[in-house]
Amino acid sequence: MAEVLVYVDHVDGAVRKPTLELLTLARRIGEPVAVALGNGAADTAAALAEHGAVKVLTHEAAEYADYLVVPKVDALQAAYEAVSPAAVLVPSSAEGKEIAARLALRIGSGIVTDAVDLEAGDEGPVATQSVFAASFTTKSRVIKGTPVITVKPNSAAVEAAPAAGAVEALAVSFSDQATGTKVTARTPRESTGRPELTEAAIVVSGGRGVNGAENFSIIEALADQLGAAVGASRAAVDAGWYPHTNQVGQTGKSVSPQLYIANGISGAIQHRAGMQTSKTIVAVNKDPEAPIFDLVDYGVVGDLFDVVPQLTEEIKTRKG
C-alpha cells in the first residue's frame, strides 16, 4: 500500500489535534508515515502510533527553533526522498502552509491549501476547499507531481487506529537557505487554559456590541461554562478589546466548530468568512436586521448584557 507523509505539528512532543485529524484523512489514501522534527520529536511516537502512523521519522536539531521555516522544508524534503509517498499532508497553520508550499516547489509538485476534506480518487486525492468567504466549495486535485495538501483543523474526526509507529531517525542535511532568517527571540503565548481557537468544539465570540475590553469577561464566563474557546470580531480586536490571536474572520482565524455563539457581532462578510462553516450557529444581537441572523440556527434579538449572563447562569444551574 502506498505511503502518505504526514507532517507533525507538536509542542515539545505533545502532538496537536489537527495532526491526529490528518492521520484520519491520510488513512483514506494510504499508510501514514509521520515526520516529527525538533525538540521532543521522538515523544510524539506513542500518540501517532495510536492514531495510525506505521512509521515515525524523527530528527532533532537546534536549527528548527533557531531559524524560520526553511530547516523544516529541508527535513520534509529529506523524508519525501526517503519515502517516495503518494501524497504529503501538512496541517494548515501559517507555518505549515509555508513549509508545504516550498516543498511543493522543490519537488515539482502542485499544492492545494486549506482543504476541509480529502477523499481518495482514481487519479489521486481530491481536496475540498471552502472559498469566497465560504459561499462556495470547490473540489481540486494536484495534477503534477506528488500532491502536497494542507488541511484545516476540524476537517476530520480523530480516530483511534493502532499501528506500529516504529521510530526511525531521519537523515537531514540543511541547505544554504536554512539559516537565512534567524529567530532572535521567542515569547511563548500565555496559556489561557481554554482550548485552541481553531481546534475548539465550541467557540464563543464577542464583537462591537461587547463595548469594551472589560466587558469581555462575560463572554469568557460563558465560554468557560461550555469549555469553549473565545473569539473576537475584527471590530473588537481593532478597538483593542481582545488580542488579535483570537480574531475570527478573513484576516484572523477561520473556525469550524460544532457550535459558534456570536455575541454583539453584526456578521459582516469579513467575519462570516471565518465562521460560516460552523455546524450550529447561534447569535445574540440587539439589531434584528443584523446579517448574522441570516446564518443562525437560533438567534436572540436582545441586549447581550442581559441574555449572555442569564445563559451562563442557566447552564450552571442545569449542570447542577
Partner: peptide
C-alpha cells in the same frame, strides 16, 4: 499544477428560529 474539478455554491443555511428577548432570552 492543480485543477479545480468542481465548484458548488454552498446551500443557503436553512432559516433558524429567531426570538426576541423579553426577559427569558
Amino acid at each position: 499544477y492543480t485543477k479545480v474539478e468542481a465548484v458548488a455554491e454552498r446551500p443557503a443555511r436553512t432559516a433558524g428560529t429567531i426570538v426576541k428577548d423579553e426577559g427569558e432570552g
